[in-house]
Amino acid sequence: MIINFFYTIVREFFSVRVSILLSVIILFIIALILTVAAPLILGWVDRKFAARMQSRYGPMYVGKFGLLQNVADFIKLLGKDVLSNAYVDGLAFNIAPLLSSAFAVAMISIIPLGSASLEIINLPYNLLFIYIFMALSPLLVMLGGWGENNKFALLGAFRGTAQMITYELSVLVVFMSIAFVSGSFDISAIVLSQSMVWNAVYFPVLFLVFIIGSLAVIERAPFDMPESSQELQAGWRIEYSGLRYGLLIVGDYVKLLVISMLAVYLFLGGWNGPLLPPLAWFWIKTAIVILVLMSFRWSLNRPRIDQLLDIGWKWLLPLGVLNLVAVMVLWA
């Protein structure tokens, strides 16, 4: 646990309470840096990958290979005029992006970052807590959609909430099955239980349900109907601009990173692997999963919202529940 590491260093110089305070502050800063670095790096990968798929170059000029393009974009967003509709509900409108990035920071703080005790704060139930932070997103969508005081944004928020709630149930069923099989909600324990065989070999159906369900929960294409930029002009995010929009994007990319890491932890064996150190294995696997998830965005078109809800309720949820029941029966 990283916080332990800093605590032992700082305790040399200060008393208990002060060193706790200092270590928490340091850890908060580290989590913040990681949260901001995620969209910068992942955003670059997304843009370059999409560009090469589309026979174009992608960011080229800002920094070597365009690496600093997202930094420049973020600075541009900071400098934008703070625009909002005159009738927005101040509290609801402003809290949605703040909470979105706050949850992102929280998720980064508790998820192991690549190897056994490399998380910022250790919680014995970190899988459950990560689920809670992701499952609060419908609340943020409703807050944002309501606070914008725009009829079409509200319609988009209804759709986004419906989509997220549908798929969260499937994801919850997946988490429960995996926790049942591994015996605990602690991610390190789950990875330990996969040291012989990866879970994806035993539960391929659950893996598929998880991939589809989690893409729909974080509202990433091809499931980005509530935000579809060709039809509904950004749906429930339509009134957000400038820094607020930037914070929403930060939340998006961090959630993408978190679900890729979860896919590796829960199904692909985490950091287990022969020759290389665990940290290298983990990040190689995560990189592959991230690239696969990104390619879904750029090569598939969106289903309609009612078709999406159909798939969620009629196929994914029953499959997941069946699998859970089968797991419980077989294990008992």
Partner: peptide, 16 residues
């Protein structure tokens, strides 16, 4: 048509 459905890549391919 592909772009209106959400698949931006087909647009760049067709233009290519």
């Amino acid at each position: 048509f592909g772009q209106d459905l959400g698949n931006i890549t087909v647009f760049t391919w067709a233009l290519r």
